[in-house]
């Protein structure tokens, strides 16, 4: 019997990420935990989840192991379609990517994500990050956006410094329409201690699940804006022994992301 003590935070995120993916969908993945989550989903409840890697592949078979990046040659193994960035982003813009799986440094209550800089101002950033990469385009045009974040007050902020990846903006019903983007927007936010969704009416972030042993109040403590709490709020499922086996021995076998051998930003 697996207890919470046996599961590290990254395994919790990857497992939860896997749970939220429905079968028979296309997932546009970012590097790291999203790839692991999607691989786990394919091995368990969603065998017909197919991946887009932004360097240009669709529905590859990851038989050489987990790609270390979205441009890794392994991400093209036995794909059904291998082109370049334009091709897969255009499939996405056209409506053929169900989920975006993105990360970032800050997120606000409307699911807007910053991955451009933190502190200072755009022209004089305190810490400049790599930039949008694919995330801005994925959040705009994949149908549903899933963000993976560490649950910390400095990351779950009232206002993000810079909106790199569009969420619901200020929450107004026509924000995304006026932005000219096509996807329906933020869907889930996954952290090691909580799973969030978004309230349909207000488009505000809502706590759906929390780590066993925690409480909605404890989660609120780690968030700088006021959370909505789902009326059906419940504890998160924890991975079984088999899930952990898959994550550790079939997905990230070298522990690049689950053991954070190399720290990614």
């Amino acid at each position: 019997m697996v207890t919470l003590a046996d599961v590290n935070p990254f395994e919790m995120i990857a497992f939860t990420g896997s749970r939220v993916l429905e079968d028979n969908t296309i997932v546009f993945v970012g590097t790291g935990l999203p790839i692991i989550a999607a691989m786990h989903a394919q091995m368990t409840h969603a065998p017909n989840v197919n991946l887009i890697f932004e360097a240009g592949s669709l529905a590859s078979i990851l038989e050489q192991g987990m790609p270390l990046s979205v441009g890794d040659t392994r991400a093209f193994r036995k794909a059904v379609f291998a082109k370049g960035l334009c091709a897969v982003f255009e499939l996405t813009q056209r409506g053929y990517a169900d989920y975006a799986f993105i990360g970032g440094a800050q997120i606000d209550m409307y699911g807007n994500v910053c991955s451009t800089y933190e502190g200072g101002d755009y022209l004089k950033p305190r810490v400049r990050f790599p930039g949008s990469g694919g995330a801005g385009a994925m959040a705009a045009n994949c149908e549903k956006t899933i963000a993976i974040m560490a649950l910390e007050k400095r990351r779950f902020v009232k206002k993000v410094d810079f909106i790199t990846s569009i969420g619901f903006g200020d929450g107004s019903p026509d924000y995304r329409l006026k932005a000219g983007v096509m996807g329906s927007g933020p869907y889930r936010v996954i952290t090691n201690q909580a799973l969030f969704g978004f309230d349909e009416k207000t488009r505000r972030m809502m706590l759906l699940e929390y780590l066993p042993g925690k409480s909605p109040e404890a989660i609120q403590e780690l968030v700088d804006f006021e959370l909505l709490i789902s009326p059906d709020v419940r504890e998160m499922a924890i991975p079984t022994e088999h899930d952990l086996f898959l994550l550790q021995k079939k997905c990230d076998t070298e522990g690049f992301f689950l053991k954070r051998k190399v720290v990614e930003q």
Partner: peptide, 22 residues
């Protein structure tokens, strides 16, 4: 650009330096 970094290997220190120092 869209992105300047190393993915799994980490963020790009020199981008951070050049951008931070304008």
């Amino acid at each position: 650009l869209a992105w300047w970094g190393y993915e799994v290997i980490g963020i790009a220190p020199l981008l951070r330096y050049l951008a931070g120092n304008q």
